[in-house]
Design a protein around this nucleic acid. Structure first.
Length: 308
DNA sequence: CACCCGTGGTT
DNA sequence: TAACCAAGGGT
């Protein structure tokens, strides 16, 4: 009886009856309460789903909505975006944040045009190979756009599963193998039902089982929730990394790029210098933007969004 | 695996 | 008000 054969508690087997007990209530709740988001409408297509997933990486739905509409109207197919200069994608990204996502979405559109005849690939592995698409986004596009059966583990789903199945308030900082195993165990066998489940469990986390003020009174699985049944114990592990922003390179980069986004013409060094008074940090931030391909340096100390 | 990468609203 | 949070990905 040594500990080497004892699985850690985080890898406890899933209650065999749990999946079926959760599917009905959550799917029925989703039928009634799902938001009518534009990327969920049939006309969005796989490209619409993919654009929305890029924009929703760390950016709230309400801020994505207007930019999404502009992008799909301007670039209705991957080839339309691929034909543009990458700097135009960065400019149209506006203030969504993390502008490297715009660059990667543009690069993904180029790859789709070159390697996939302009159609968003259906295969999870091919999606994963595209720039800016990781484990989550590949599964999300395959599931939401093509109705495939994939475990879609985003921050909402991870929180819902941590509470309902594992009985803790928050999931670990980084996604664990135990979480992936749990997500697979909870995934309905039927493909259509599985893709619906992915969207429904995510929506439940976004609307009801939220990070701070969860509303168990509106939760369809409150009676089955391990965390609630345990008396909703507070998170004990290490605090999740706080992200300070003021004074960081990210803030400087944001200010520099804002100047370049607003200008149709190349910008003089002096017009960038005014956004931050500390010259060393300012130079480091600008160099970083150039290294990332977000900014193109020109002769005479001028800069612009990248044309290529 | 820890850290970096924007932005703005909420508590 | 500082901290936290928001459909992550890349290194």
């Amino acid at each position: 009886m040594t500990s080497i054969d004892t699985p850690p508690t985080s890898e406890a087997p899933v209650d065999p009856a749990l999946p079926a007990a959760l599917h009905g209530p959550v799917l029925a709740w989703f039928d009634r309460h799902a938001r009518d988001l534009p990327w969920r409408r049939p006309e969005a297509g796989a490209w619409g789903v993919m654009v929305s997933e890029f924009m929703l990486q760390q950016t709230p739905v309400v801020r994505v909505l207007p930019v999404y509409e502009q992008w799909l109207a301007r670039w209705p197919r991957p080839a339309d975006l691929a034909a543009e200069a990458p700097g135009e994608a960065v400019r149209a990204w506006g203030r969504l944040g993390y502008p490297r996502r715009a660059l990667r979405l543009h690069a993904a559109a180029v790859a789709i045009t070159e390697r996939h005849h302009g159609d968003v690939p259906r295969d999870h592995g091919q999606l994963l190979a595209l720039p800016g698409i990781g484990e989550y986004t590949a599964a999300a596009v395959a599931s939401f756009a093509y109705g495939q059966r994939h475990a879609v583990l985003d921050t909402n789903v991870r929180r819902v599963f941590a509470r309902a199945a594992t009985g803790v308030q928050y999931p670990p900082n980084a996604t664990t193998a135990a979480e992936r195993r749990l997500a697979r165990a909870l995934l309905p066998e039927d493909e259509t039902k599985a893709s619906r489940w992915a969207a429904a469990s995510m929506e439940l986390g976004a609307l009801v089982c939220t990070a701070k003020s969860e509303d168990c009174g509106r939760c369809p699985i409150a009676e089955r929730c391990a965390w609630r049944l345990a008396g909703k114990p507070a998170h004990d592990g290490p605090p999740r990394r706080g992200q300070t922003y003021a004074g960081t390179d990210r803030q400087v980069r944001g200010r520099l790029l804002a100047v370049l986004r607003e200008s149709a013409d190349p910008v003089a060094q002096a017009d960038l210098d005014v956004v931050w008074d500390e010259p060393v940090q300012r130079a480091r931030a600008l160099d970083g933007l150039v290294a990332d391909g977000l900014v193109e340096p020109l002769d005479g100390g001028r800069y612009r969004l990248p044309l290529s």
